[in-house]
């Protein structure tokens, strides 16, 4: 059962809430208590835009059991237009259309299920545009 920890991540998973360092402007996604760049402990909460580009990617052919019915699927490191970085599965895109440098849009999708009777778990995915 992953429900309690799932709920804590909802602001990030559902609406891309990130922390922008008040001192050095570095954007942490997810938010942190200490800025990894300047050690500041003061942040503003921001919402990342839904636009970004692929920095690198892979196509998962062999997954853990929980994703096995979805293979093959793409996963990419995305840089958003604010310069924040995150990792997301690729949705609605032909595998041959996934490449470094491609522009993507972040969308809201179901990511996984907690077994056949547990909760549905949602989050962000990226679509190549």
């Amino acid at each position: 059962m992953i429900t309690p920890k799932y709920v804590r991540e909802i602001p990030q998973r559902y609406r891309l809430e990130a922390a922008k360092c008040k001192n050095c402007s570095y954007i942490s996604f997810p938010p942190r208590l200490v800025c990894p760049k300047c050690k500041s402990r003061s942040f503003d909460t921001i919402r990342l835009s839904d636009e970004g580009k692929i920095l690198t990617f892979t196509i998962i052919r062999v997954s853990s059991d929980i994703f096995s019915h979805q293979t093959p699927y793409g996963v990419a490191v995305i840089e958003t237009s604010e310069g924040a970085k995150l990792m997301a599965m690729i949705a609605d895109t032909k595998i041959e259309d996934i490449a470094i440098g491609k522009k993507v849009k972040l969308i809201f999708r179901k990511i996984r299920d907690e077994g056949v009777s547990g909760i549905h778990c949602y989050g962000y995915k990226a679509v190549v545009i």
């Binding site: 920890k5 991540e9 990030q12 998973r13 996604f29 997810p30 690198t56 990617f57 892979t58 196509i59 998962i60 062999v62 997954s63 853990s64 994703f67 979805q70 699927y73 996963v75 990419a76 490191v77 995150l86 990792m87 997301a88 599965m89 990511i111 996984r112 778990c121 989050g123 995915k125």
Partner: peptide, 16 residues
């Protein structure tokens, strides 16, 4: 929460 949740595996990380 931010890598594995989104479907990545270890071969996948090194593949990236």
């Amino acid at each position: 929460e931010y890598e594995v949740y989104n479907g990545i595996t270890f071969p996948g990380l090194y593949a990236m």
